[in-house]
């Protein structure tokens, strides 16, 4: 498992300007990381280098499977590591985000993304220290079983919205939306 860099991530779901991200990062308390989402027009990979210059905390990317086939998920994971992200939070991604009439692509689900990322670690395409978290929700039954599956299969963390209760406390990242 990667080093426990942080337990909290400030989440910027959609990036529309680099200035906004830089200003938000400046307000992130010490010990808290940032999580840059892919819902905006600007891809987190495009601004990672700029943000890294001023933000020294843990920097995560949220990689959604929506609108990516497995080849693009693969290259996004490798690029994230190459661009300086400390880790990635995998999610399927909001179905109804965007205009809604494009063909939705969900080639991989988060469990399959996890397996893909672990294989990339295994063959040295990303470093073993690259942290892998999977978005989940609080819940029992199927939700708890799937979260347990992610951790058993090799995810470092599950990632939950802030203040959610979790049976996996030491393996949970809490996501709080940017103010």
């Amino acid at each position: 498992m990667g080093a426990p860099l942080t337990a909290r991530l400030v989440y910027i779901a959609s990036i529309e300007s680099i200035e906004f991200v830089a200003a938000s990062c400046a307000k992130v308390p010490a010990g808290t990381g940032i999580l840059l989402g892919e819902y905006g027009r600007i891809n987190p990979l495009a601004i990672a280098g700029d943000i890294r210059k001023s933000f020294t905390g843990p920097m995560f990317i949220e990689i959604i499977s929506k609108n990516k086939n497995r080849d693009l998920v693969d290259s996004t994971v490798v690029s994230s590591s190459a661009c300086g992200f400390d880790g990635a939070v995998f999610a399927s991604g909001l179905f109804n985000a965007g205009a809604g009439i494009a063909k939705p692509v969900y080639d991989l689900d988060p469990a399959q993304m996890l397996k893909l990322a672990l294989a990339l670690k295994g063959n040295g395409k990303i470093p073993a220290s690259f942290i892998i978290a999977i978005r989940s929700v609080t819940g029992e039954g199927p939700v708890a079983r799937r979260a347990r599956f992610y951790l058993d299969e090799g995810a470092d963390y599950i990632a939950l919205e802030t203040d959610a209760s979790t049976p996996f406390e030491r393996q949970t990242l809490l996501i709080e939306p940017v103010a």
């Binding site: 399927s92 909001l94 179905f95």
Partner: peptide, 20 residues
């Protein structure tokens, strides 16, 4: 599943209900 998730549920599940 609208997302065709083969290993679910996804993170969008709301209680017992579908995100979509």
């Amino acid at each position: 599943c609208p997302k065709g998730v083969r290993n679910g549920p996804c993170e969008g599940i709301k209680g017992t209900r579908c995100e979509v």
